[in-house]
């Protein structure tokens, strides 16, 4: 029985190696200019509206550029899948790789393979690092926002909402998925700002896992605990809009007025937040910028056509803040 297995396996391997080509290409000429470029994009998944918007935007941008073809791979939020996808891209001999890494570490092996294959790797939206702290050697650039900064301006927006009031003011922090770099960074930013003043205090802090329903469920429980302990909650700072939107339902069901009794600030800038702001049920939202499609096309063209790398490794994208004041006007322009 086992003999048969080995024979079969050996035969299969032999057949493949006879018919297949080798991988012995060394670094080619310096200019890799071609008529058409194929770009492989490994996306985290489709776990939130913002993420889906990011994917859609990428696909639309590439579709509009006839010179570029995008190979899209969704990793369903697993790092293992992303590593396998990049290997496939290398095997498919793509011209460039765009990666939005689900976690920050563990890419060493596959990035070194990519380097060997001479395809530039661009990091988008989330950053990564290598063991030797030399991520810049393996990737061309990182295009993305500063989540620490996003956390800081979100925190500031909430504090500003209480500018006319006396402390102490208790608020709730709804965190993103435990361990996600965006949650960690936004949390850092938030605590940076909160640490500098003591009027507004974070009384409760829990994870809402970036989902609407968990945001609602957790907020419900917190409101009840607060009530039992005699604490009055005046504000909510959520790492993402959809958690805040879920939580605002819990607030409404508790008989309070979201946006009025409890001021709400979130991050992402999804349409739901704008609609709520237009109604006065939401205080502010920090935009999580998009635009990766055109940006990556621009940079890849530079690299492959002209061998020109972007000056700074970190291509920073700006976060805009939207509040009740300017939300209504901006609403028609929000695509997602």
């Amino acid at each position: 029985m086992k003999k048969a297995c080995f024979i079969l396996l050996g035969l299969a391997l032999l057949c493949q190696s006879v018919f297949a080509g080798g991988e012995s290409e060394q670094t080619g000429p310096v200019s890799r200019k071609k008529d058409k470029y194929v770009v492989g994009f490994s996306q985290v998944g489709s776990e939130s509206e913002w993420r889906i918007a990011m994917s859609t935007e990428m696909q639309e941008a590439y579709a509009a550029h006839p010179r570029f073809t995008l190979i899209f791979s969704d990793a369903q939020q697993k790092q293992e899948n992303q590593i396998a996808a990049i290997r496939n891209f290398i095997q498919q001999k793509v011209d460039a790789i765009v990666l939005c890494p689900v976690v920050a570490t563990g890419w060493d092996a596959v990035l070194s393979e990519a380097k060997d294959s001479n395809s530039p790797v661009l990091l988008v939206n989330r950053t990564a690092n290598t063991v030797g702290n030399d991520i810049e050697k393996y990737t061309a650039c990182f295009i993305g926002p500063d989540n620490i900064y996003a956390g800081e301006i979100a925190a500031q927006a909430l504090i500003d909402a209480f500018a006319k009031e006396q402390g102490p003011i208790n608020i709730v922090e709804l965190q993103g998925t435990v361990g996600a770099s965006s949650a960690v960074d936004r949390g850092t930013g938030i605590h940076n700002v909160f640490g500098k003043q003591n009027k507004v205090i974070i009384k409760y802090s829990q994870t809402g896992d970036y989902t609407r329903s968990l945001g609602k469920q957790v907020m419900e429980s917190i409101l009840k605990s607060a009530q039992a302990e005699g604490v009055k909650i005046r504000g909510l700072l959520a790492h993402s809009d959809n958690m805040a939107l879920g939580a605002s339902q819990a607030i409404a069901e508790a008989g309070l007025k979201p946006g009025v009794d409890i001021k709400i600030v979130g991050v992402d800038g999804v349409r739901g937040a704008f609609e709520a702001m237009a109604e006065g049920k939401y205080t502010a939202s920090v935009e999580n910028p998009l635009g990766f499609g055109n940006k990556t096309i621009e940079i890849i063209t530079d690299i492959l056509d002209n061998n020109k790398y972007p000056g700074e490794w970190w291509v920073k994208l700006k976060n805009d803040v939207y509040t009740e004041a300017n939300a209504k006007a901006a609403l028609p322009n929000r695509k997602y």
Binding site: Q77, E80, I83, V103, G106, W107, V178, G179
Partner: peptide, 9 residues
């Protein structure tokens, strides 16, 4: 394979 560890692996 992943040279890292996180709770969601």
């Amino acid at each position: 394979y992943v040279l890292s560890a996180t709770g969601t692996h």
